[in-house]
C-alpha cells in the first residue's frame, strides 16, 4: 500500500520539486561548460604559441666565416637550454630577404643561426652573452618574445576562466543551500517528527541530499545539452588557430575538439554539489535538536 509515499515520508518530491532550482542549475551548468571550453580552448592555443616560440631565437653572425659560424655552433652545443642550433643556408637567407632588399649581389649578409630552446623560460640574454664572448659581434634576437607574451595572455585568460568556474560552483552551492532551507522550512514539523521517532541525522539529511542530487544532475544534463551548440561555434572560431582539428570532424562539426570529459563531469559535479550542500545544510539544522 502507498509504497511510493512510504519512500518519501517528508513529501520532498513536492517540497523540493522546484523547477527554479533545476533551471538555475542548468544555467550554471551551461556557464560551467563554457568556462571549461574557454579554458581548454585557450590552453590549446597557448600550447601552439609556445611551440612556435621555441624556434623564435636567432643569432646573427656578421662576417660569417666558416670558423666563426663553427665557433658559435660550438658554444651553443655546450648550453643545456639549447635543444638544437642550425645555420640557415645563405641561399635560403638571400631568398628570404630578396623581397625587402632586392637583387644586391655585393651585399654581405650576416650568417644566421636558428636556435631551438628546450623551453621558453630559458635566459636568452645569457645565451647571447655566451655566443658574443666567443664570437665578437654576434647578435642574439628573441623575436619570439611577442609570441611568449601571447602565451602569457592565454594563461591569464585561462586563469580567469577557472576563476569563473569556481564562482559558478560557489553560486551553485548557494542556490542549493537556499532551496534546501526552503524545503526544510516547509517540512519543519515532519522533520521534527522523524527526529523524535528516532531517525538519525544521516537518514533525514540523506533524504534531502538525494533529492537535491537528482535535481542538480537533471539540471546539469539540461545545461550541458544546451551548451553543445555553443561549443561547436567556439570550436569553429578557434579552428584557424588550432589547425589539425578538421581531420576529426564529423558531419562538418569538430566533435573531436570539444572537451567531452569536462562536459561529462559537469552534471556529476552538479550532483555532488547538490548532495554535499543539502547534507550539510540539513545537518546544521538538525544539530539544533538534542
Amino acid at each position: 500500500m502507498s509504497n511510493r509515499s512510504g519512500r518519501d515520508p517528508l513529501g520532498l518530491r513536492r517540497a523540493m520539486s522546484d523547477r527554479l532550482l533545476q533551471a538555475l542549475i542548468a544555467a550554471m551548468a551551461l556557464l560551467a561548460c563554457l568556462g571549461f571550453a574557454a579554458a581548454r580552448g585557450v590552453d590549446a592555443l597557448g600550447e601552439r604559441w609556445r611551440l612556435g616560440a621555441e624556434a623564435a631565437v636567432t643569432i646573427q653572425v656578421p662576417d660569417p666565416t666558416r670558423t666563426r659560424i663553427a665557433l658559435a655552433l660550438g658554444v651553443l652545443a655546450t648550453l643545456p637550454e639549447v635543444a638544437d642550433a642550425n645555420p640557415v643556408d645563405p641561399e635560403r637567407l638571400a631568398e628570404l630577404l630578396r623581397p625587402w632588399l632586392g637583387e644586391q649581389p655585393n651585399l654581405t649578409l650576416p650568417g644566421v643561426i636558428e636556435v631551438q630552446l628546450r623551453n621558453l623560460d630559458a635566459d636568452v640574454a645569457l645565451i647571447g652573452d655566451r655566443v658574443a664572448e666567443a664570437v665578437p659581434g654576434a647578435v642574439t634576437e628573441a623575436h619570439g618574445l611577442w609570441v611568449g607574451r601571447l602565451a602569457a595572455l592565454a594563461a591569464a585568460v585561462q586563469g580567469v576562466a577557472y576563476a569563473a568556474l569556481l564562482l559558478v560552483g560557489l553560486i551553485a552551492v548557494a542556490v542549493v543551500a537556499v532551496a534546501t532551507r526552503a524545503a526544510l522550512a516547509a517540512r519543519q514539523e515532519s522533520v521534527a517528527v522523524l527526529h523524535q521517532l528516532g531517525a538519525t541525522d544521516r537518514e533525514i539529511a540523506g533524504r534531502f541530499a538525494r533529492r537535491a542530487m537528482v535535481l542538480a544532475v537533471c539540471g546539469g544534463v539540461v545545461g550541458v545539452v544546451v551548451a553543445v551548440p555553443a561549443f561547436f561555434l567556439l570550436a569553429r572560431l578557434a579552428q584557424p588557430f588550432g589547425a589539425e582539428v578538421t581531420a576529426e570532424s564529423l558531419a562538418g562539426l569538430p566533435w573531436g575538439s570539444l572537451p567531452w570529459r569536462d562536459i561529462a563531469t559537469v552534471p556529476l559535479i552538479a550532483g555532488a554539489i547538490g548532495w554535499v550542500t543539502a547534507q550539510s545544510v540539513v545537518r546544521v539544522w538538525l544539530a539544533r535538536m538534542p
Partner: peptide
C-alpha cells in the same frame, strides 16, 4: 503530529520503516 501528506497506513508504518523492517512485515 501526524504527517499531513502521508496516509494513515504510512503514518503508522513510520517507526517500522525507520527500524528497517521488510515491507511484508510492515504491511
Amino acid at each position: 503530529r501526524l504527517l499531513p501528506h502521508l496516509s494513515t497506513f504510512d503514518n503508522v508504518a513510520l517507526p517500522l520503516r525507520l527500524a528497517r523492517r521488510s515491507e511484508a512485515r510492515v504491511a
